[in-house]
Amino acid sequence: MVRKILLPLDHTDPRSWEKGLPVALEQARSFGGEIHVISVIPEIIRLPNLPANYGAGAKDHVASVLRKVLDENGAADVPVTVEQGSVYREVLKRAKDGKFDMIVLASAKGSAPYYEIGPHLAQIVRYAPCSVLVVRD
């Protein structure tokens, strides 16, 4: 039974929510489950020539962009978590710690040999502690 669904979204790539969100919503409706969104932004490197608060507000900005996307697509009640670091590591960590039953994510455009399976998606599929549903075109 699928009760908790993790939906990784990229705030800069509409394909991630245009493809992944409808499928996650359908899965949640079918099983009476809940969806949680995660987005991962790169770690901000602290360099001596940058101000101490450089990058402040990055997580809030990403969360607000995704909140708007969710609100406009019938998922206003879905919680959003924004982490910094490696995409696949943070997604896998959240999936394990949150005891998710399924990860739903959209495939990416790519060229051979990674056609539609980017390096992050491949690592998530390989090491996920739960089922992974890859939404393709």
Rank of each mutant, 00 (worst) to 15 (best):
residue 124 I to F: 04
residue 118 G to L: 03
residue 106 A to D: 05
residue 136 R to S: 11
residue 83 E to C: 09
residue 84 Q to G: 11
residue 48 P to T: 10
residue 83 E to M: 13
residue 21 L to H: 01
residue 62 V to R: 11
residue 50 L to M: 14
residue 93 K to C: 06
residue 19 K to V: 01
residue 128 A to F: 07
residue 132 V to H: 03
residue 29 R to T: 08
residue 26 E to N: 06
residue 32 G to D: 04
residue 7 L to D: 05
residue 35 I to N: 11
residue 128 A to E: 05
residue 75 A to R: 05
residue 27 Q to G: 00
residue 88 Y to F: 15
residue 29 R to E: 14
residue 43 E to M: 06
residue 101 D to L: 10
residue 90 E to C: 04
residue 2 V to L: 08
residue 103 I to Y: 07
residue 2 V to P: 00
residue 102 M to S: 02
residue 14 P to A: 15
residue 126 R to E: 15
residue 37 V to L: 08
residue 95 A to L: 12
residue 116 E to R: 15
residue 58 A to D: 13
residue 98 G to Y: 08
residue 83 E to F: 04
residue 92 L to G: 09
residue 76 A to S: 14
residue 22 P to H: 10
residue 22 P to R: 11
residue 54 Y to M: 01
residue 23 V to D: 13
residue 111 S to E: 12
residue 109 K to L: 07
residue 62 V to Y: 13
residue 20 G to Y: 03
residue 133 L to K: 07
residue 2 V to A: 01
residue 66 L to W: 08
residue 121 L to S: 02
residue 30 S to I: 07
residue 25 L to T: 05
residue 86 S to I: 08
residue 11 H to Q: 09
residue 104 V to S: 07
residue 65 V to L: 13
residue 50 L to W: 14
residue 96 K to L: 14
residue 66 L to T: 09
residue 26 E to D: 14
residue 102 M to T: 01
residue 79 P to C: 12
residue 5 I to T: 02
residue 109 K to D: 12
residue 40 V to K: 06
residue 45 I to L: 15
residue 14 P to L: 04
residue 92 L to N: 11
residue 82 V to P: 00
residue 2 V to R: 05
residue 104 V to M: 07
residue 68 K to E: 15
residue 130 C to N: 01
residue 80 V to F: 06
residue 53 N to S: 13
residue 119 P to I: 02
residue 48 P to L: 14
residue 67 R to N: 14
residue 117 I to A: 01
residue 100 F to K: 02
residue 51 P to C: 02
residue 68 K to N: 11
